[in-house]
Design a protein around this nucleic acid. Structure first.
Lengths: 327, 327
DNA sequence: AAATATAATAACAACGTTGTTATTATTGTA
DNA sequence: TACAATAATAACAACGTTGTTATTATATTT
């Protein structure tokens, strides 16, 4: 069925080892021969068999991405970006949407060169893996080398910015559950900022959501707007929540930022596709991409020793049009 | 690095071929030996090397999914469903988000058993592939066996339903460009229904969008609501557009379905997460999953001859709360 | 022109697995 | 007890590739 180097060899009247070398552009084969072989290979539609190649060379030039939360839009932009970046290094990415443990097993069977795990959610299994793993997500007590965002600082920056604009009554909408470390950190950042900036504290300042989907944000914001104390600004815990919050606000005939200011965690291109370009706080997509790619390459090239186990990325404040000063 | 059957063999004091048979549960190896070997394999964290296995057996039990339009939310639910269904057949799925041609090449190198292409968009390349390909999408002049939705009928049903509710002034929001066959079909269904149901025709009845994202729907609906002729009902060309349309409607302080009825193409679970549960027209997710899985399995088992090149799925009307009768 | 150095190609082992064939151990039968 | 029949295990080739080693063809030196 598939064309092999032996087919090419027969066709070209050379040995198959010569074909192998010719296709890998080895200097050990004469230029005209090389050219002729490549020509024949193209003509026959040859595709190297990854299985055979990686069996002997122990390299697959493939990175497995574990992405169980396929619905999370925030990640699709990042994955697209990483895929493109890795391509420049000659690496291909393959994605599995199975749960973490299963996906890691699959990629181990495929002997990919490294695995990148998008580690949302509080469930965590350590899976025995002979393939090196890098995670993007939870830095607390990491099972593997991890790239993480300094979420606490991110939310701190958000509040600080609003404070500098003159806002005194600020709410946070996000996951308040204790067990989810990712979300907990953000809450801590918020509390810290409220304290440091000497802002008002009031009951109902921290608004919980049931999940991290758009709808959860909608419901939470709806509740908030129904209450008597309406803040002058809201900090939203994630992109998807923000969309829901916006929905609720529009239904209440309020305008952003005239009537209420919002700033969102998550710094992805989609933030500009909202009704108004959004002010955000978070690590720019390219920065995450760069760092993750770098860590992956270092891991593959056995530079783990020189790497620290956890890398924190510094968030940035991105000012756009969703917040206005209070006079 | 990785544990091989030879390691297990050494450990168990048997030949590696016995290990191979034991792990594949062959009757040729004695029960106690088998048990002991499996025990050791687990203990050592053995993962079979897919490369070696598929090299000799010419089977990988893997299906490659080509999904260049990773951002399209509508597909993520379908892919999740298919992944789960194929698992029941003992197949693993791997996803590539590279452009169609590249992705097909990659999966050919990996010698997956079949490739499933999500073929949105008008750009189409035929790539030489020794691995069988099935596409979900464009049935017109298909390059490979294709599963498609009868979109024309779907939109027809939508209009017909609105008509039976008494609506006379109905708009269609969607892509009107000539070159995109997927979208063109829907427009045809709309025109046909308007004719057959003897509905009003008026200028501005067909509202074009620039893309298929939420924002495109928002802009289009915004335009519509600014014009003097506001219809009593809207047919939306896709889930993402619908979200945008809803946004615009809420901003105009109109209510669905009290002030305006909407029905949307696309029949995915997310439709229930909108502000109100949505009436839709389309093929239920499970039906698509079932058919795609069936076609993939048939393709792998060389039953192409018995298969027709194009399979049209029949859409269904799903009535929920986004449309109301006109009295 | 013969001997040697070098360039080009061919041959072969290895990677980890499976399926087939060969060998050895254990029965059952006369 | 000896012999065949069968059960259990071992040995080996093959899959398509790469890297190393062996062979042959060509160029260089004297």
């Amino acid at each position: 069925m598939g064309v092999t180097i032996k087919d090419i060899a027969k066709y070209a009247g050379v040995s198959y080892s010569t074909v192998s070398k010719a296709l890998r552009d080895s200097p050990l084969v004469k230029e005209p021969t090389k050219k002729r072989i490549i020509q024949i290979a193209n003509q026959l539609g040859y595709q190297p068999n990854v299985a055979a190649r990686s069996l002997v060379s122990k390299k697959s030039f493939t990175i497995g991405i574990v992405w169980p939360t396929i619905e999370r839009a925030a990640h699709s932009a990042l994955i697209t970006s990483i895929n493109k970046r890795l391509e420049e290094y000659g690496y291909t990415t393959l994605i599995s949407i199975n749960e973490m443990k299963t996906a890691i097993d699959i990629f181990n069977r495929y002997r990919v060169d490294a695995i990148l795990v998008f580690d949302d959610g509080p469930e965590r299994y350590s899976s025995p893996s002979s393939v090196p793993i890098v995670t993007y997500g939870i830095a607390e007590d990491p099972l593997y080398p991890t790239v993480d965002v300094n979420r606490k600082k991110a939310i701190f920056y958000a509040v600080d910015y609003l404070c500098r604009l003159g806002h005194m009554k600020i709410c946070y909408i996000g996951d308040l559950k204790k067990r989810d470390h990712l979300q907990k950190e953000k809450v801590e950042g918020f509390k810290q900022a409220v304290l440091d900036c000497k802002l008002e504290t009031f009951s109902g300042q921290l608004i919980p959501v049931n999940g991290l989907e758009q709808y959860d944000g909608y419901v939470a914001a709806k509740d908030l707007l129904r209450s008597e104390v309406i803040p002058s600004a809201i900090v939203s815990g994630s992109h998807d929540l923000t969309r829901g919050i916006l929905q609720a606000i529009h239904e209440s005939e309020l305008l952003v930022p005239e009537d209420i200011s919002i700033i969102s965690y998550d710094n992805i291109p989609e933030m500009n596709n909202l009704v108004i370009p959004f002010s955000t706080v978070g690590v720019p997509l390219e920065t995450i991409t760069e760092k993750l790619t770098e860590v992956l390459m270092d891991t593959i090239n056995n530079k783990e020793k020189e790497m620290s186990q956890v890398i924190y990325l510094e968030p940035e404040l991105h000012i756009s049009q969703s917040c206005r000063p209070i006079n």
